[in-house]
Every structure is written in structure tokens, then in C-alpha cells.
Design a protein around this nucleic acid. Sequence first.
DNA 1: TCAGGATATTTTGCATGCAATTTGTGTTGG
DNA 2: CCAACACAAATTGCATGCAAAATATCCTGA
Lengths: 242, 242
Amino acid sequence: MTNQLDATVQVLREALLAGHYPGGDKLTEQGLSATFSVSRTLVRLALADLEREGLVERTPNRGFRVRSFTLEEVSDAIEVRGELEGMAVRLAGERGLVSEADRELGDLIVQMDAVLVDGLTGPDGRARWIDLNAAFHNGLIAASGNATLAETIAGLSRMPLVSARALVFDQSDPHGSLDRLKAAQADHRAVLDAVRARQGARAAHIMREHALKSARNKRASFDAMRRTDFIPSLPGLALVRA
Amino acid sequence: MTNQLDATVQVLREALLAGHYPGGDKLTEQGLSATFSVSRTLVRLALADLEREGLVERTPNRGFRVRSFTLEEVSDAIEVRGELEGMAVRLAGERGLVSEADRELGDLIVQMDAVLVDGLTGPDGRARWIDLNAAFHNGLIAASGNATLAETIAGLSRMPLVSARALVFDQSDPHGSLDRLKAAQADHRAVLDAVRARQGARAAHIMREHALKSARNKRASFDAMRRTDFIPSLPGLALVRA
DNA sequence: TCAGGATATTTTGCATGCAATTTGTGTTGG
DNA sequence: CCAACACAAATTGCATGCAAAATATCCTGA
């Protein structure tokens, strides 16, 4: 690690996303300082960073509290991400893909197909899907050629459950999960086809709908989780309330 | 001011936007500490905040530099803002305006009309236009009912020249300036009509185009400024390079 | 018993000091 | 004359200490 501050931010962020500090809880600088064996200064600086990420809230002279998110906020944020990713593929379609990006995105589709026929055997397959999926989304965003757009999407994605990486795999319904991934893959293929055909508006529509499906799936998984008392290991899920 | 940190951030931000420290310049903590008569700790904390806002960049162990922006970055960011404001009015149209918002937005249109017939006499008129325009945009964004969307737009608007408040009044061409404001006002009216008619998609298209015009106007003003060596007093303009 | 207030403790906000890294300068050897 | 190294100054990163504000505790008097 380059410096201690980044390390502290990382540790604190993981503790928060893991749900170690329930939403709404007060975080005292001294307490965190003792728990993680770092100076109060570093805790203070790290909390300021996490405030920018939206994981904690500060009240002047009254310290920091763990922020919690309603399902509606998460859903709203995913919708914004969808709008921006839609814009990204529209721009990518309008400007056209450079050959290297074209090839890379095609390769990712092929690799994701391979994961799907294997049927997501075990956590390895799921982790691989998450990586490939994120790479595909990021590739499309980069192809937009708009750096501010990419930064804005990245900022949004720091919110729990909003990132394209935050996928819920409902282990109680593996068949349904696989079907949803196949539908997502169909969207990916359609988006890439549209971008290649320079149909930017069409690509944007598909992408927006793709995000809405993701939000719907998350809501459903959240409800199922609440019903069955089964808590999937999804970073940040503990900070979301109905 | 509630605390010294906020005051320091404010002072530093204004100094940066005023162009007191040219883009790319190195900012030393001690130097700023001496210049503004605050402790190095506060300078350090303030710079961390300004880094979040995007006005300065930090290199580990090497301090902060004033960030500068290309005209293309500014233009890209305005386009993103337009997309998001378009989304906002689409949502507003889909959910409908509550009566209070409907009345307030209508009032703002009337007040802006009044400013326009007075022909923007002097800086007071311009300041009033800026306030009313910002209130109108913010009202529409609030009417979307999506808090994350509002936050995201607010974050983007911190970038120099991207905010709806960052309007260039080309004093060398007052007639053209007035015409542009009249065109903007026509857009405002059309957007509000579309939202009221629950035509969300139409409202979104108008809003996106509204933003594109703003970006175009800024580019033109920037070019004119470069040609004539006349520098309008627009916060952050000094940080933009061709 | 309980409301109100004085006092003690905790906690945040800020300043200062020290070590580590970086940057600038001068010197030496080729 | 210039490259490379050694040393000095400057600068950042971090820790600790102190004052102000907030919070908790205890006491008093009805």
C-alpha cells in the first residue's frame, strides 16, 4: 500500500460494507482508532473520504454516523446508472468502435457464453461472471469517449448494490438465477450489435432496460432474502433497509 | 460559518475559481497556510475536500496541483448534465407535478420573462437571471423525485462552467446575448409545457438540446474571449484551456 | 420520585511537532 | 562542460496534545 490512509479507508470501507456497523450507528473516532490500531488522525481522514463515497454521514461537531440506504434509493441510483450507461452506448454507437474495442467486447461476450454453458458451477464461475460482466460494461463506457461520463458512473457505482458488480445469485433458485443471467447476456449481445450497427438510440434503450431489470432482480432477491432469512454475501447489503 | 474548515474550503475554492493559481500550479501546504493565515492542518483538510470537488489533484507524497480542464472536458460534462436533466424532466413528466411545484415553476417562468423585457440592464439583471434560471432547473430536478439523480447533477455542477449558473454574458454582443437568453426561455417554457402534458420523453429531448446549446454557447464565448483578449468574470473560466 | 441544573466525562476540532520522503543545490570525477 | 552523486533544504504524512463543544452523570430540592 502506498500510504496508511488508503489502507485505513480500505479497511473501514470493508468493515462498513460487511455490515459490522449497523446503519445509523454512531462512529466515534477514538473507538475506531482503538479497534483498528491506527491514529485518530487517520480515522478522521478516512471517514472524510468515506463521507464522499456516501457510506457515512457527518454532522458538524457531532461526528459520523453509518449511512443506511432504502431500497428505493438503491433502485433510483441504479436507474440513474442505467440512464448514463445508455448514454454511453449511444455515444459509442455514434462515434463507432475502434477495432480493438470491437474485438475485446466480442471476446468478452464469447467468454461469458462459456461461463453460462458451464452453468455457473460454484463460486468460481460466479466470480468469473462478475468480472467479465464488469469488464463488458466498462468497455462500453470507455468506448463512449466521454471521460466525465465514465467518472460519474464510477462514482454512482460506489453506492452499495449499485455497481454492475453487485449481482445477487439466489442460491435457493439456481435455475431462475441462470435464466436471468441468460437474459442479461441476450441484452449484452443486443447492445453490442446495436453499437456495431451504429444504432446509438437503440443501444441506449436496451441498456436502460438492462439496468431496470437489474434493479427489479435486486428488489426480488431482497424480498426473498427477507422471507427466507438467508443472507447472501453481497457487500453493502447489510446497509440496505426496506 | 459553522467551522473554520468550511470557511477555509470556501476561501480556497474562490481563489482557485478566480484564477489566482493558474492551472497546473503546485500548491504547497505551507504556502497556502501562510497566505490565508490558517494552520497547515486546515489547508490539508480543505485541499482534500477540493480534491473531491475536482478542483485540485493530489499525487501521493508529492502534494496538490491545481487541476485544469480542457474545453472538451467541460463540454462533455455539460452533455452529461443535459442527459441527467433530461432524465429528470422525463421522470417529472411521468410522475406528474404536485400543484405547488407546478405553480412555482410557472412563477419562475413569469419572473424570467420580466427580466427579459427589461433587457438585462446591468449586472443586477444578469444576477437575477442566473438565480431564476438555477431555481427553475433545480425545481425541475426536484420534481423528478429521484434524490440520487439530484445529487449526481449537483456533483457534476461543481466542475467549472458546468453548472446551470455558469452563464456567459458576452458584453461585446449584447443583442446576441439577449437572443440566446430568449431562446433558452423558449426552451424552459416548452419543457414545462411538456412536463405538464405528461410528455416525459418530449421534455427530455428538449432538455438535452437545451444543454447542448449551452455547451455550444460556452465554446463560442470562449473562442470570442480568446480572440478579443476580453476575459469575462466567470468563476472557473481561468482553469479552462483550449 | 422526578425535574432541573451543575459538574464531570467524552468527543470533536484544530494546532503543533517529528519522521520520512521528496526536491533542490553544490561538488566531484570523468 | 556535463553527468552523477552527496548533502541540505523543503515538503508531505502522520501522531500527539490541547481547547471547545457536546454528552453523560450526579446532585439538589421540591
